[in-house]
Computed example of a mutant assay.
Amino acid sequence: MKIKPLGDRILLKTEEGETQTKGGLYIPQTAQEKTQTGVVVAVGDDKDVITVKKGDKVMYDKYAGTNIKIDGVEHLIVKMADILAVIE
């Protein structure tokens, strides 16, 4: 399935949280905090507002966007205003 965001929206592939601490302890899936970082998969057509590009790693607002599953993989559609930073 292929999804193209509209307007100032961005499609992100969310990243998985760490499963092991620095000390070597494993964190169960139920106890993991949801990360607020992702990789830009596609961008909308409002080029005046969108300042990120495909492949950028970004940090987004905790309660932003709509969760969707594409081919069994978690994705998130967010507005450009919900993108907080680009991670370099």
Rank of each mutant, 00 (worst) to 15 (best):
K34C: 11
E88R: 14
V52T: 09
T14K: 05
L84A: 04
K53M: 03
L84W: 02
K47Q: 06
E16G: 06
K47V: 08
E33Q: 10
V49Y: 11
V73S: 06
P28L: 01
I10R: 10
G17H: 01
E18R: 05
I68R: 13
I3Q: 03
V58W: 13
T14E: 01
I77A: 02
G65A: 07
G7T: 07
G65N: 07
D71H: 11
P5T: 12
K13M: 12
G24T: 00
L11G: 09
I10K: 10
A64W: 15
I50T: 02
D45L: 00
D82Y: 08
T66G: 11
G17D: 06
L25R: 05
I77Q: 03
Y63D: 14
K57D: 14
E33R: 10
V41M: 14
Y63F: 15
V43M: 05
T30R: 09
D82G: 01
G65I: 10
T66E: 12
E18K: 11
K62E: 15
K53H: 09
G55H: 05
I10Y: 07
K53T: 05
I50Y: 02
L6W: 08
G24A: 02
T66P: 09
T37W: 00
V49E: 12
A81K: 13
K4C: 11
K47M: 11
V43W: 07
E16H: 10
I50W: 05
D8T: 14
K13C: 05
I3D: 01
T37K: 02
G7V: 06
A85Q: 08
G72Y: 03
M80I: 03
N67D: 15
